[in-house]
């Protein structure tokens, strides 16, 4: 399992790096999907198959396909790739690189200082364990997330509705007064 973990981790790191440097937006998105899939494999090796399945269903399957959908509608061609190339000058890398290096130093320090603990769970956390945790100690988090989603739902419903109401008015007034 350790070998699988390191392989998946390497794929995750490399594909995430490629997300940043890819000029073509759709190719970058494909690498992001790959990165999410490798994260799912990491979850499996750490004994969380349920979380891994949800990661693939929700992130790789649902959210990323919406990203692809939007990019497809915008139909960004070679122009946007050229623009990306312009933005990716060497100077752009200085700031993020310094900050990332600081974080890397933190991680290395913590790994060196902390006692060695095996990261592998004694037993796999199945759907039952995840469910008990979600509706036990983390109930408030679940409820807060559902409130946030409800707000998003109401917001998108409102946006979708206002357009539909305006259209027949414009047709009747023959030019739209504006509101």
């Amino acid at each position: 399992m350790e070998g699988v973990f390191y392989m998946a981790a390497a794929v995750a790191v490399i594909s995430t790096a490629l997300v940043i440097v890819q000029m073509n937006v759709v190719h970058a998105l494909l690498y992001l999907i790959l990165s999410l899939l490798s994260a799912a494999v990491i979850f499996v090796t750490l004994g969380a198959p349920f979380v891994a399945a949800l990661e693939v269903i929700i992130y790789a399957g649902a959210i990323m396909i919406l990203f692809v959908f939007v990019i497809m509608m915008l139909n960004l061609g070679t122009q946007s790739a050229g623009m990306e190339r312009q933005w990716m000058r060497a100077g752009m890398w200085a700031g993020p690189a310094v900050l990332a290096l600081l974080l890397l130093a933190d991680v290395i320090y913590m790994l060196a200082v902390s006692p060695r603990v095996s990261g592998y769970a004694a037993k796999a956390a199945g759907p039952r364990e995840v469910g008990i945790a979600l509706f036990g100690p983390y109930l408030i988090g679940v409820e807060l997330a559902s409130v946030l989603l409800l707000a998003g739902l109401v917001g998108s419903f409102h946006l979708g509705r206002s357009v539909r109401q305006r259209l027949p008015e414009e047709g009747e007034a023959g030019g739209g007064e504006g509101d």
């Binding site: 198959p49 949800l54 269903i57 790789a60 399957g61 396909i65 796999a124």
Partner: peptide, 25 residues
């Protein structure tokens, strides 16, 4: 004989969308 077999199927069927979406794009 996966314990999350049903979710595994749902996960793969949701990945199948990419074939059509990317093929068309």
């Amino acid at each position: 004989d996966l314990n999350v077999g049903l979710l595994y199927f749902l996960a793969l069927s949701s990945l199948g969308v990419y074939s059509v979406a990317l093929g068309g794009w």
